[in-house]
Lab assay of single mutants.
Amino acid sequence: TEHYTFHTEEQAQRAAKKFKKQGLPVTIHEKNGKFTLQVN
Score class of each variant (00 low, 15 high):
17 K>R: 11
1 T>F: 13
35 F>G: 02
27 T>F: 09
23 G>W: 02
22 Q>Y: 10
23 G>F: 03
24 L>V: 11
1 T>L: 13
9 E>D: 05
23 G>V: 00
27 T>N: 05
32 N>T: 01
3 H>I: 14
29 H>R: 09
5 T>I: 14
27 T>M: 07
20 K>L: 14
27 T>A: 07
12 A>R: 00
5 T>R: 05
6 F>T: 01
6 F>R: 00
16 A>V: 04
33 G>S: 02
27 T>I: 10
4 Y>W: 11
38 Q>G: 05
18 K>P: 04
22 Q>I: 11
11 Q>E: 14
25 P>I: 15
22 Q>P: 02
13 Q>P: 00
38 Q>R: 06
9 E>M: 15
34 K>S: 09
31 K>Q: 11
3 H>Y: 15
16 A>K: 03
38 Q>D: 08
32 N>L: 04
20 K>E: 14
2 E>R: 14
22 Q>S: 07
26 V>K: 00
24 L>A: 04
33 G>Y: 01
33 G>R: 01
10 E>K: 10
29 H>P: 00
34 K>D: 06
23 G>E: 02
40 N>Y: 10
36 T>H: 15
22 Q>W: 11
26 V>Y: 06
2 E>W: 13
27 T>K: 07
11 Q>R: 05
32 N>Y: 05
38 Q>Y: 14
39 V>F: 13
32 N>M: 04
6 F>N: 00
28 I>T: 01
19 F>I: 06
9 E>T: 05
39 V>T: 05
33 G>A: 01
40 N>D: 11
40 N>R: 06
8 T>N: 06
36 T>V: 15
13 Q>R: 12
9 E>V: 12
18 K>V: 09
30 E>G: 06
20 K>T: 10
8 T>V: 03
27 T>Q: 09
14 R>K: 10
27 T>S: 10
32 N>F: 05
38 Q>M: 13
36 T>I: 15
7 H>Y: 11
11 Q>K: 06
24 L>I: 14
3 H>Q: 11
11 Q>F: 04
33 G>T: 00
27 T>R: 07
39 V>E: 02
17 K>Q: 12
20 K>N: 06
19 F>G: 01
40 N>W: 12
4 Y>N: 05
32 N>P: 00
38 Q>F: 13
5 T>P: 05
2 E>P: 10
6 F>P: 00
26 V>Q: 00
35 F>W: 15
36 T>D: 07
14 R>D: 09
13 Q>F: 07
12 A>L: 03
26 V>P: 01
3 H>E: 13
6 F>D: 00
23 G>S: 03
28 I>D: 01
25 P>M: 15
22 Q>M: 15
11 Q>V: 04
19 F>Y: 08
22 Q>L: 14
22 Q>N: 07
10 E>S: 07
21 K>E: 14
8 T>S: 09
38 Q>L: 13
5 T>A: 07
28 I>H: 00
1 T>P: 10
7 H>T: 11
33 G>M: 01
14 R>Y: 06
9 E>I: 15
21 K>A: 14
40 N>G: 14
38 Q>N: 07
13 Q>T: 08
3 H>N: 10
30 E>V: 09
1 T>E: 10
38 Q>H: 14
2 E>A: 11
6 F>C: 06
37 L>D: 02
22 Q>R: 12
31 K>R: 10
31 K>H: 13
8 T>Q: 04
